[in-house]
Design a protein around this nucleic acid. Sequence first.
DNA 1: GTATATTTGTACGTATGTATA
DNA 2: TTATACATACGTACAAATATA
Lengths: 132, 132
Amino acid sequence: MVRAVIDPRSGVPLYRQLAALLRARIVDGTWAPGHPLPAEPDLAAEYGLGKDTVRDALSELRAEGLIETRRGHRTRVREQVEPQLVRLRRGERVAARMPSPAERAEYDLPDGVPMLVVGDQVYPADRYVLVI
Amino acid sequence: MVRAVIDPRSGVPLYRQLAALLRARIVDGTWAPGHPLPAEPDLAAEYGLGKDTVRDALSELRAEGLIETRRGHRTRVREQVEPQLVRLRRGERVAARMPSPAERAEYDLPDGVPMLVVGDQVYPADRYVLVI
DNA sequence: GTATATTTGTACGTATGTATA
DNA sequence: TTATACATACGTACAAATATA
């Protein structure tokens, strides 16, 4: 019996169904950080989907910060780095937002990485944690 | 003399050039929060671009948290809400990351809104600021 | 209240470019 | 050099949600 992992009649967009399948393998550890995902044409062939549908699924995972895609490279599960601690002082306020293009270039940030904002200072959230 | 705002020979992807044009109008206040952007077909016609190129540009601005798109509605500059203050306690650590699909559904979050993480607690960054 | 038009979303296709292996 | 992989950019068609006449 073939298990239909992607169901066109479910009402859920195909790219979201594919994203859910891939996300599950990342969050449950089947694909550890650094592990390569199947190439886009392979995913399209395996699930009988068009190229754009596969790319939409990967785009969603990239925006969630789960994967990293680079031209010429295989798509991989994003690696985690040991966060650097930054001590906060009394009265300071902490916000978070997505980086501007200038900040993304300055810190070489992939998609899906927010910035921690403390006053005038900004810290890429993939490498900093604030402590009181 | 016509000023060529989008230059196919510049080497910069067309969708990024369009995103930069639209972003400039948002960050300089020409288009205030809540202001509608031109409809996608209008942007395509105005700049002589294909539909996908326009959508790629809007997707980038959406991921930055600058705009909000909804089917059937006009795309608009994202509204800001007065942030609610949450007081931190000594020893607590603050991180930020993108929300999971479950968190996005729970808080009805648009694209481009990170989560502030304090221990087991999570706070949508578009409506919370942490204070020491 | 219904029908129509508008608007964004989904899904497919093709071709070519750029970076890397 | 050649092949592989992701990126950009064009096209089409239809679906779904909303706004308008």
